[in-house]
């Protein structure tokens, strides 16, 4: 299979080189996958075995969902999952709407107000909002201790906007002119022509936004006093830093569950949604990311 891809000048690599490469790749993949595996295995192992083994299990003697049952029987983690899901869905939808609107208008040549607005956007690259002043804005807009504080400050990302604008600029202007001559207005051109051509970039930018909402724990820490409103990531942070105890997550019945088991199950629950979306968006990465820009 490999010969077909290799140009003639490259020659055949020695078996030693091939073997070294295979070993290197295997080790790297193992370093990435193994920690995740240990977390999954520990969360599905019987809690007594986790304790007996000193805090982790690599291959459980028996797979059991006991820890998960306890977590779901108590209300805290399911509620946090619902908050995270809601914030991610609402936030991503609003973010995409704002980003697409602004990016499309800024991608049209000589649009009214285009230059100063673009400068406004670019300036946020130079000086991102500071933590304390942003806190004052959230306080001043009355978002403190509301779910809005979890997404409102993150709605637009200058990087995503520039990526999207670059993609829209690459739509051939002949197509747009042709649609205009056929009598289509700007809104129609955007909805019927430009957006269908931009599925890849919308998928990638949508993923970036969704991940930033799902993973954000800090807004919960700084803006929400009531731990009952916390999203998953904030909850997880509190478990690992010892702010919340296992009893909070599992109720009285969970007293016999090892804290590590609970922590690992929460890590799994916080990761699974990303793993579910990932394969579907992945094929757009290189196309979508490299078209407008690259984030490293």
């Amino acid at each position: 299979m490999s010969n077909a891809h290799r140009p003639a000048w490259m020659g055949r690599p020695s078996p030693l080189t091939t073997a070294a490469k295979a070993v290197a790749i295997t080790v790297i993949v193992a370093l990435m996958v193994f920690p995740m595996w240990v977390v999954v295995a520990t969360s599905f192992a019987p809690p007594e075995e986790v304790v007996a083994n000193g805090g982790f299990v690599i291959w459980p003697s028996e797979w059991t969902s006991l820890t998960y049952q306890r977590i779901f029987a108590a209300g805290m983690v399911p509620r946090a999952l619902a908050v995270s899901l809601g914030v991610t869905l609402v936030g991503t939808a609003l973010s995409l709407a704002l980003t697409i609107g602004l990016a499309y208008a800024l991608s049209r040549p000589q649009v009214f107000g285009g230059k100063p607005v673009l400068l406004m956007v670019l300036f946020t690259f130079l000086m991102p909002a500071g933590m304390i002043p942003l806190f004052l804005v959230v306080q001043g807009t009355g978002l403190l201790n509301t779910f809005g504080a979890l997404f409102a400050p993150l709605l637009l990302n200058a990087f995503n906007l520039i990526v999207m604008r670059g993609f829209f600029q690459s739509v051939p202007s002949e197509l747009i002119e042709a649609a205009r001559i056929d009598g289509a207005g700007e809104l129609r051109i955007l909805l019927r022509l430009v957006l269908p051509l931009s599925k890849a970039v919308i998928a990638v930018v949508g993923l970036f936004y969704a991940v930033s909402y799902w993973n954000n724990f800090f807004n919960g820490v700084i803006y929400l006093n009531d731990s009952g409103m916390w999203p998953m990531a904030t909850l997880l942070r509190s478990f690992t830093s010892g702010g919340l105890t296992v009893a909070d997550a599992t109720g009285e019945a969970g007293a016999q569950i090892a804290p590590v088991s609970v922590q690992m199950a929460v890590v799994v629950l916080a990761t699974v949604p990303i793993l579910l979306v990932y394969p579907f968006v992945q094929r757009f990465f290189v196309k979508g990311v490299l078209t407008g820009a690259v984030k490293a």
């Binding site: 602004l102 637009l156 207005g185």
Partner: peptide
């Protein structure tokens, strides 16, 4: 130009409003 680009300007307004309130509001907060 404003008349011609009316729709585009309307598309920009939510984004501009956000920029004014959050990053630029925060810049004032300094």
């Amino acid at each position: 130009r404003l008349r011609r680009d009316g729709v585009l300007v309307a598309l920009m307004i939510p984004g501009i409003a956000w920029l004014v309130v959050f990053p630029y509001g925060a810049a004032f907060g300094n």
